[in-house]
Design a protein around this nucleic acid. Structure first.
Lengths: 132, 132
DNA sequence: TTTAGTGTACTATATGATATAATACACTTG
DNA sequence: CAAGTGTATTATATCATATAGTACACTAAA
């Protein structure tokens, strides 16, 4: 279990999933939530790799995905920065929210839940919190 | 794109995901939805492998997972059968539904959506997407 | 101009998951 | 015994993931 800290924000990685994917998802989350501001510099590939004790190539992999997402911009020699475009981030949020939601609904349908049952289910999960 | 038919039910597999996982999910779905009845015989490993044009070991892999799920029982020399226990299937449905739901809510939270926004989002997806 | 800090590119290597192939064995039923 | 089951084993191949090491390109600041 390794931890990384961006300003006053921290995230952890483990061995349950691909490392680059965990870095990717955590950074996506921090940027989408606005925890890292527009145009703000994010850690260099080498720095984050050093702090997480993983290979720079692995961080690079994550950063390349973030660039494809349109969430960051890389400037050779300067560093990597969150996009200036707030609308691009909103677009990203909506795209993935739609994707996650459709995916979730498909899986629930596969288990034989209809729409009303899914709505009920979410309510119980929300109030109850974690698993049961 | 290969198709398999169980009685009057069909499913397809492609190359976008591991083959054994697709067989697993499709069979889980058919059993959880009750499309295959309690105690009913499911295709032999060799038969399904032949029809889907994949290796018997791959089907075996899926069937072993289904057995761990408690959804099927294998009888050496006879074949493989859906469990007799309806409550076991309900338990499975609830377990996975809770898992999927928690997972979904976590991802949406990571994007910065709160509970009310998630509920609104699902409503828009429902009206636009599949029907029950 | 030099140096330090960036991103980038490439080669090599290792491991695990996935998938196939081929064969043999164990058990049940007719 | 024969046919149809599930099971087990060994071998091979491919791909994703991850690491290691090295070198290059660019920028800003000393």
């Amino acid at each position: 279990m390794k931890a990384y800290q961006v300003d006053n924000l921290t995230f952890q990685i483990d061995f349950s999933q691909p490392l680059y994917e965990q870095v990717l998802m955590q950074m996506r989350s921090l940027i989408a939530k606005g925890a890292i501001g527009l145009g703000e510099k994010i850690p260099s590939v080498r720095d984050m790799a050093h702090d997480l004790k993983i290979n720079p190539n692995t961080v690079m992999h994550a950063y390349q995905e973030l660039e494809r997402d349109g969430l960051i911009e890389k400037r050779r020699g300067q560093g990597t920065f969150v996009t200036q475009s707030g609308s691009r981030i909103q677009q990203f949020r909506n795209h993935f929210a739609a994707d996650y939601t459709q995916n979730y609904l498909d899986k629930m349908h596969a288990l034989g839940f209809n729409l009303r049952e899914i709505n009920d289910y979410i309510k119980t999960q929300q109030s109850g919190g974690l698993s049961q």
